[in-house]
Amino acid sequence: MSEHAVAPYRNDFLREVEKNVEEGHWVKMCMQCGVCAGSCPLGNAWAHPPQEIFMMIRAGKREEVLTSDSMWMCTSCYNCIVRCPRQLPITHIMHGLANYAHRLGLAPKGQPTQATATLFWNNLIKKGRVNELTFSLALYFKDGFVQGIKNALGMQSIGLGLMKAKRLNPMEILGGHGVKDQSGLQAMIAKAREIEDRKKGFSK
C-alpha cells in the first residue's frame, strides 16, 4: 500500500484533511442538508458542490477530491457560510482544500483560477507589491504568445485610457517599485512557509 492509499469510508483521509487543510476540522460537522449546494450562485459550474465534497472526504475519495476543480470554482461570495445551519466556514474550507491540492501538485493542470492565483502570488512576493502591468501581461500571455497578442490588442483601449488617467505607468515594465526592506520581506515569507510546511506535513 502506498503512503496515501485510503480504504473507502474509513477515516484516514478525513484525518489527513483535519490535520493539513485550513479549517479542515469542520468537515466532520457537516450534516448533509445541502443548503450550501443550493445557495452557491456558481453551483452549476461545480462538478461536486461542497456538500458532496464533504461526503467524498468522509468516503475516503482522496484522489477524486484533490484532483477536482470544484473548489477552484468558489468566488468567495460567502453565501454558503451565511446560510450553513451548522456554521461551517465553507468558503474557507474550499480555499483550504484548493491550496492543499496545489501544494501536493494534484490540482488540475491549467485550471484558470489556479493559474491566475499562482501568477498573482509569484508577482506579489517578488517586491511585496503587485505590479499591475507585469501581472496583466503575464495573464494575457499565459495561454501562449498568439493568444497573448490577441488579449493585449483586445484590452488596448482600456490600457490607453488607464495611462491617460495616470493609473498605469508603462515604466513599471522595467521592474516597478516595491516595499522597503525587500530582503526582510523574503525572510518573513520564508519563515511563514516553513511554519506552514511544518504544520501541514510538507517539511522534509
Binding site: Y9, K28, M29, M31, Q32, R58, R86
Partner: peptide, 29 residues
C-alpha cells in the same frame, strides 16, 4: 460510522448529534 437515511434526533438530540460529530463519529446518508 452511523449509516442513516434520515437522522431523527429531535430537540436536544441535535446537541447530542453535534457532540457525536465533534468526537469524530462519521455519519453517512
Amino acid at each position: 460510522m452511523v449509516m442513516y437515511t434520515d437522522l431523527r434526533v429531535p430537540g436536544t438530540g441535535e446537541d447530542f448529534y453535534r457532540s457525536g460529530q465533534q468526537k469524530g463519529v462519521i455519519f453517512t446518508k
